Simulated scan of single mutants.
Amino acid sequence: MSVNDEGLILISLWCVNLMWLKLHGCCEIMEVGMAAVGENYKALKKLSCASCVFGIKGINAVVSRCQGLEELSVKRLHGAHDGEEVVGFGTTLVTSVYLKEIDDTLEKIGNLHAALVDVHLEKIQVSDVGLVGLCKCLSLDTLHIVKIAECSNVGLNLVAENRRMLRKLHVDGWRTNRIGDNGLIFFAKHCINLQELALIGIYPTSSSLEAITSKCKDLERLALCGLNTVGDAEI
């Protein structure tokens, strides 16, 4: 609790080889301290923040400066409504992102980035409400829903109904059985321009596969991975 911007700046000046920084419950660290992290920690690969108060501005102060950052974890970030409510990854190398309770943020991404074409959501806590927010990305062309336990047929249906020009869909259901035949049949009915489809860890049957092949005439690529319900008859 006693570590403030001055303390964090001092650490950043001396520990220049730091590769992993975790801030938990640091209520005295603000955007100034986070900017120093981005400036001085050139070797930083992992940043984890939980229950801090510097908001999205503090996160962006690091991300915009630390181009070698690979993993970002943000949980229960206070001060999120600070006028800069969307994380901008810029030119960083971030490959793993964990953002908790960001449904509201996804809706803002949809509002602010209507021209966004490609969205990849992986291992983050997003519900069907968050997917509805993404539907506001009017130019959405490619959507990856990977290992997100709370997404279901409901969210997939809403995406299909609102973004009918979608060309690429990748779904890794993580064997939660929340996305299946109903969502895929509805999707095939509305997104007839689909060209690429990857289904991983879900349980489609001949009903949904028949709907996809009969409706999506432009389909060029199909990946079926780890599907226990697909056999010779379905192929």
Results as ranks from 00 to 15, higher is better:
28 E>Q: 11
178 R>N: 10
132 V>M: 12
115 A>P: 01
30 M>P: 00
33 G>K: 00
158 L>G: 05
215 K>V: 01
81 H>L: 13
199 L>P: 05
114 A>Y: 08
11 I>W: 07
220 E>Q: 14
166 L>E: 10
45 K>A: 10
131 L>W: 04
230 V>C: 04
116 L>S: 08
24 H>A: 15
172 D>V: 01
38 G>P: 00
73 S>V: 08
101 E>A: 15
93 L>R: 02
218 D>K: 15
38 G>K: 00
200 I>P: 00
54 F>Q: 04
95 T>I: 05
119 V>E: 00
213 T>L: 15
194 L>C: 09
180 G>P: 06
144 H>T: 10
1 M>E: 10
123 K>C: 01
137 C>T: 07
11 I>F: 14
130 G>C: 06
75 K>F: 13
193 N>Q: 15
148 I>S: 07
187 F>V: 12
136 K>C: 08
88 G>H: 12
21 L>V: 02
44 L>W: 09
111 N>W: 06
134 L>W: 04
129 V>Q: 15
165 M>I: 05
161 E>R: 11
35 A>E: 08
145 I>P: 06
3 V>H: 03
70 E>Y: 08
87 V>Q: 03
93 L>A: 09
144 H>V: 11
147 K>P: 02
120 H>S: 15
167 R>F: 05
93 L>V: 07
147 K>Q: 12
108 K>E: 10
